[in-house]
Design a protein around this nucleic acid. Structure first.
Lengths: 324, 324
DNA sequence: TTGTTATATGTAACCGGTTACAGAAAAGAG
DNA sequence: CTCTTTTCTGTAACCGGTTACATATAACAA
């Protein structure tokens, strides 16, 4: 790898001049510029980002911290973030935290030491204090951490209402809710939306709300028990798509049909939902869009552009498919 | 952020001594060490990785280049790579290339400028020449690029045979193959395995091999056409799990049942396969294991450890589920 | 013609670490 | 007691860029 010094020597100028050419600032004579460009070409020179970072105290790198990239919600988010970042000249460091405070803190330190320019984070455990200590812009996605941290979320409560109302509309008369974990805010919000729609129904029981862990196994088990105990349930609103697929499996295990005997609706709109059989009706979040907005917002903050809004509460969309 | 100079001043020593303490090398008096450690504590000092990288010409960072993290094979791979790298003190930069030569070359340059220590790559388009120009260790996964580039693949041909033989064993008498794209080596290998098993069968026709793009839409369409033309097909070996799910959908569209009328087997063993209805029988690759091995091997190469093997051809496993 | 401004380029300090080298003190050997 | 070796610490060069500042010439205005 050639250095700026070698280029300077080759072109017969000082390193300052070469630097001016590559950064396109300051005065450079046209003749000189051409000589320098030729030298850059012939040496196949690439400026060293590390040296540049050291001086500029920024690395053109952002961190993306998610609980687990294997959870199907995150690949799409990650893709959106990476696409956007890359387009704007930034690189993305991927961090899986399992929502483990120690891993998160470890990564925060690592990223800081690498002069990361900003961070996109999905976490329930991270505190506002930890984030502020970083002294770099942070955008949170899918979960709110604090009012003064830029945030991109969706209207979970409205989505919960929308899902439940839709089940009512298509004729369900005993609707259960397979809720996400209690410590995750959006799980409770979605549940709220459900409650708003059903708490006045004569048939409603608190027992119709059961909890899963946003993954399949627990959802299957919970649904199985629920349907055994309350066989007249004819609609299930699951807190996310994975659990909805688990619910469908449980329904099948009991020899019932989806959607004929029990209609099932999910939440998230992951790609998997369309691959399921029957294809899953769901409240779709604009996942890619969220990632894109998060990256754009973060980079605007990094580059101190003028920002109109730092809090986005995006709409969700009912996607009707075969499971309802 | 405190610097080494401030620590040195606080502890009343030179920066060299502080450096010796944090790197735990050279001679340092116990008393002095304690003073320095105290100063580090009290200033909450974290060494600056960028400065360190500049001098050491390495960044404790590796690149992970995949076609598209949204393809369900890659999140698990990425997770394994990240887990392993992080455990060994490395950070992972995520690159989606869409197998686009320009994006790949762009990323190669970017990574090089950042003093990346090594690269894990999944690509058909990248050439051995491009990779050697990098002058950093590279491990390829899932695809072979060149004999002298460390590689981790699975026994695709054997897997293809295994899948086809299993369909025969359970009684299928007309087995079709939904092949992956022609430019992807593993697609052809899997197809080879299929051919080896069927080319002597009296019923075999070349027409039983149809091509999809390793995604769902094309697989549905292709399968639909195939089954319309050859209604007596009773077994389908799909080149990957996504296409297998597409095949199942097509079978259903034609009013037939899986596995009763048509048995379907996939390849890859992605998480999705278990979420499908019916749950998908598949030839499972040890995806996580592959990522872990790739990361371990790469880091051994980076750290110039002794390497026993640089080429792993891993076994695949038949996972029997409901679709057969 | 002289003073001012725009253009062009180089020198050297700086970013925050690491380490070669040198010098001094302490420990050990003969 | 002298000589060698080990321990301890500091000075300064270096990694490869960026940029403040100095200097010089050309262009322009008065």
């Amino acid at each position: 790898m050639a250095t700026i010094k070698e280029v300077a020597k080759e072109a017969g100028v000082s390193v300052a001049t070469v630097s001016r050419v590559i950064n396109n600032n300051g005065y450079v004579n046209d003749e000189t510029r051409k000589r320098v460009e030729k030298a850059i070409q012939s040496l196949n020179y690439q400026p060293n980002d590390v040296a540049r970072s050291l001086f500029k105290k920024q690395s053109q790198t952002i961190g993306l911290m998610v609980p687990d990239i294997m959870n199907p919600f995150f690949p799409e988010l990650a893709r959106a973030v990476e696409d956007t970042a890359s387009k704007l000249g930034y690189t993305v460091i991927l961090c899986n935290t399992d929502e483990d405070i120690e891993k998160e803190q470890m990564y925060l330190n690592t990223l800081l030491r690498k002069y990361i320019d900003g961070l996109i984070v999905v976490s329930n455990t991270l505190t506002a204090k930890q984030i502020k200590r970083l002294n770099v812009p942070v955008v949170t996605v899918d979960r709110e951490i604090s009012k003064d941290i830029p945030t991109i979320i969706v209207q979970n409560t409205a989505g919960g209402r929308m899902a439940t109302r839709y089940l009512k509309e298509i004729g369900c008369e005993r609707i259960a809710h397979l809720k996400g974990p209690d410590h995750i805010r959006n799980a409770n919000e979605r549940c709220c939306g459900y409650k708003e729609e059903v708490h006045n129904e004569p048939w409603f029981k608190e027992d119709y709300i059961i909890e899963g862990h946003y993954e399949m196994e627990s959802a299957i088990k919970a649904t199985y028990q629920l349907l055994t105990r309350y066989p007249d349930i004819d609609g299930i609103f699951a807190g996310n798509d994975i659990m909805a697929i688990g619910a469908i499996k449980a329904v099948h295990q009991l020899g019932k049909k989806v959607p004929d005997d029990v209609a099932v609706i999910g939440f998230d709109g992951i790609a998997l939902a369309k691959a399921a059989t029957p294809e899953l009706t769901t409240i779709a979040q604009p996942i890619y869009e969220m990632g894109r907005m998060a990256a754009n917002l973060l980079i605007d903050l990094i580059e101190k552009k003028k920002i109109e809004k730092t809090f986005y509460n995006l709409e969700v969309e009912l996607v009707k498919r075969q499971s309802t």
